[in-house]
Each structure stands twice: as structure tokens, then as C-alpha cells.
Design a protein around this nucleic acid. Structure first.
Length: 109
DNA sequence: CGGCTGACTCTGG
DNA sequence: TCCAGAGCCAGCC
């Protein structure tokens, strides 16, 4: 398996089930060989690809990270709300309740 | 082969 | 709790 890093990151994100969220940090740990910052970079480079549920990735404090450009953050919150993810009035979600941790990934497959 | 460009997390105050 | 500063790196010109 020697796909580019960003593609492996996208693969991990595709595993997050609807109605649950994961963090940049968690995705990085699942991928196994990158950092949270890079997950953010990968998503920024994603553009609009419907095969990746980018909205299910939020930051470690349970809030939606601001983009430099565009209205992505707004739409992200809307999409998650539609999936049933609840945000309190500070725009924060309870990771204990909605956070998701992947079972071990078998990259050798 | 540089230079530029970002969706982060941690730590200390 | 909130905020600023530091560390950080793959892709695409």
C-alpha cells in the first residue's frame, strides 16, 4: 500500500459512520503515520469530493475549525446537525457522546 | 528544485 | 475558560 498520504487520510475519514464525528487527531492516529495538522491540510486540499464525509472531522475541543476562505464551517455544522449531532450554544459538541474511534485498520488488505 | 499554502494541537499565562 | 505562540509538512505550481 503506497498511496499518497492524503489519500490514506481520506480512506480513514470514509470509515466514520453517519451521526458520529472524529477529530483531526484521531484520524491522524488511525492513519498511523501523520499528524493532526496534516489531516487538516489534506482536507483543505480536498475541494469538493462527495466520496469523503469531510463534515465528520472536527477539532479536539469539539468545535468546528474555521477555514481561511469559504463558508465550509457553516455548512459543516448544518450537515452534522442533519445527521443528529448536537452542538451546544457555544458551538461545541460532546465528544464523549458523538466522538467515534475506529477499530484497528488492516492496511495490508 | 524552491516557494507558497493551509480544516491542528499543546502549552503556559 | 480563552488566547497567543511554537512546532510542523505534503502537494501543487
Amino acid at each position: 500500500m503506497d498511496k499518497p498520504l492524503y489519500h490514506r487520510i481520506y480512506s480513514v475519514i470514509r470509515l466514520i459512520p453517519p451521526g458520529r464525528v472524529s477529530t483531526y487527531k484521531q484520524v491522524a492516529l488511525m492513519e498511523g503515520n501523520c499528524t493532526a495538522r496534516q489531516v487538516g491540510y489534506a482536507l483543505a486540499a480536498l475541494g469538493k469530493d462527495p466520496s469523503v464525509p469531510w463534515q465528520r472531522v472536527i477539532n479536539s475541543t469539539g468545535t468546528i475549525s474555521a477555514r481561511k476562505q469559504g463558508d465550509g464551517a457553516q455548512r459543516q455544522r448544518e450537515l452534522l446537525r442533519q445527521e443528529g449531532v448536537v452542538f451546544n450554544r457555544n458551538g461545541r459538541t460532546d465528544l464523549e457522546r458523538f466522538g467515534w474511534v475506529s477499530p484497528p485498520i488492516d492496511w495490508a488488505r
